[in-house]
Simulated assay, not measured.
Amino acid sequence: MEWREEGIVLGVRRQGETSAVVEIMTRERGRHLGLVRGGRSRRLQPVLQPGNQVEANWRARLDEHLGFMTVEPLALRAAKLMETAIGLHGIQLLAAHVRLLPERDAHPRLYDALQTIVEHLEDPIAAGVMILRFEVALLEELGFGLDLEACAATGAREDLVYVSPKSGRAVSRAAGEPWKDRLLPLPGFLAQGATRPDAAHLAAGFRMTGFFLARHVWEPRAVEPPPSRAGALNEIARSTRD
């Protein structure tokens, strides 16, 4: 078995004295691991950093084996990501989210989003918008998609300001007024497509996605939310105060 494809490095761990097990996200083969011989060398260590784009060649005798991987650099973004707190937290958070997906399952939509986000992590607000939309897409890819297009009660498509915690569907202001204390806020930029929300609206959006990630993903798997998520949210909030 052998394949060659571009991928984004998610993480790496030591294997023996000189090798490393590298985890990448590819468009057609999803999240994939492979053993890189000499992965701890001076030449390869800068390449095998989260956020970098590489061309990977993977081969194994059987498809279910870990396999051996060789990599060539295409875009070395790691140094730029390490320059800012949002870059560091952002790439760690995205990698943690991708690890929620089954290994070797293709998710081209998420791969394309990931590739775009890692190029724009220097701006906390813009990065926050893209990461939040990534979380919405992640829920959908995992089978827990939110319906934010129309009011669950009336079918209206205007003035959607709440989300039902039970159904994950949008609710209009008028329909949700009697139960607003039990509903989650829906930031207008998610429902209406605005591109530059303030930090308060972003925080509300992350509370919403965090609620559904906890209910459907983290709690059933008995895992904690990644610390990088809190770090990214704190950096987004801090950036608006500076």
Rank of each mutant, 00 (worst) to 15 (best):
194 A>V: 01
64 E>Y: 07
7 G>R: 00
15 Q>S: 15
9 V>F: 01
237 A>P: 03
157 R>D: 04
196 R>P: 11
27 R>I: 03
143 G>Q: 07
94 L>M: 15
30 G>D: 00
14 R>S: 11
199 A>N: 06
91 I>V: 15
56 A>I: 07
52 N>I: 03
165 P>F: 01
108 P>F: 07
2 E>G: 00
137 A>N: 12
65 H>Q: 13
158 E>L: 10
131 I>Q: 03
54 V>C: 08
223 V>Y: 03
158 E>I: 10
77 R>D: 05
63 D>V: 10
224 E>H: 14
211 F>K: 02
121 L>M: 12
159 D>C: 03
45 Q>W: 03
75 A>G: 10
179 W>E: 15
165 P>M: 03
232 A>G: 10
38 G>S: 01
171 V>F: 08
11 G>W: 00
180 K>A: 14
219 E>A: 15
176 G>F: 04
50 P>M: 08
40 R>P: 01
29 R>V: 00
40 R>E: 03
224 E>F: 09
60 A>H: 00
203 A>R: 09
169 R>V: 04
197 P>E: 02
207 R>G: 12
77 R>H: 15
223 V>W: 05
84 T>G: 04
119 E>A: 12
32 H>L: 08
187 P>R: 01
134 F>V: 05
150 A>I: 05
62 L>Q: 12
155 G>S: 07
53 Q>W: 04
112 D>P: 01
119 E>L: 14
6 E>C: 05
189 F>D: 08
217 V>W: 02
130 M>W: 14
35 L>Q: 05
236 I>R: 06
100 L>G: 07
48 L>C: 09
17 E>N: 10
181 D>G: 15
11 G>E: 02
53 Q>I: 14
114 L>R: 04
109 R>Q: 09
140 E>T: 08
12 V>F: 01
160 L>N: 10
76 L>E: 12
86 I>S: 15
89 H>A: 11
88 L>V: 15
118 V>M: 09
41 S>M: 05
223 V>N: 00
215 R>N: 04
46 P>Q: 10
85 A>N: 13
95 A>K: 14
145 G>F: 02
108 P>M: 06
98 V>T: 10
99 R>E: 12
97 H>R: 11
27 R>G: 04
2 E>I: 04
175 A>N: 09
226 P>Q: 11
62 L>T: 11
134 F>C: 04
34 G>A: 01
90 G>W: 06
134 F>Q: 02
68 F>W: 08
73 P>S: 01
82 M>Y: 12
167 S>Q: 06
240 T>Y: 03
191 A>Q: 07
154 T>C: 07
186 L>V: 11
1 M>Q: 07
